[in-house]
């Protein structure tokens, strides 16, 4: 994503795996996650990232019940770690 190099933590949401429960949104201390207007493959409003402001706290990762829906990149992450 443009403007996000490794100095900036980020959260990536796989929209098709999101079931729209909203737990990540309410858990985010920075309020950088939001419910998107469009519907995904399953008919849910997926969560989305505002694009900046993530601190890499991982709260959303541990609140999300879907194993692969959220990936959190902490500050100083290495792209190779992503499988």
């Amino acid at each position: 994503m443009a403007g996000n190099d490794q100095e900036y933590p980020k959260v990536v949401i796989r929209e098709d795996e999101c079931k729209g429960c909203g737990l990540c949104i309410v858990s985010c201390p920075e309020n950088v996650l939001f419910e998107q207007k469009h519907l995904n493959r399953q008919g849910f409003h997926p969560a989305g990232y505002k694009g900046q402001g993530c601190t890499g706290c991982t709260f959303c990762f541990y609140q999300c019940p879907e194993p692969g829906a959220i990936t959190v990149y902490k500050k100083g992450y290495v792209e190779e770690e992503v499988s």
Binding site: D16, E17, K19, Y62, Q63, C64, P65, P67, G68
Partner: peptide, 22 residues
């Protein structure tokens, strides 16, 4: 279909515990 997502309902506690165990 949808073999990339679990069968659990939105917001289900099982998913979270599954993640912690895994």
């Amino acid at each position: 279909m949808n073999k990339d997502i679990t069968h659990y309902c939105p917001g289900c506690g099982h998913g979270v515990l599954h993640k912690l165990i895994a």
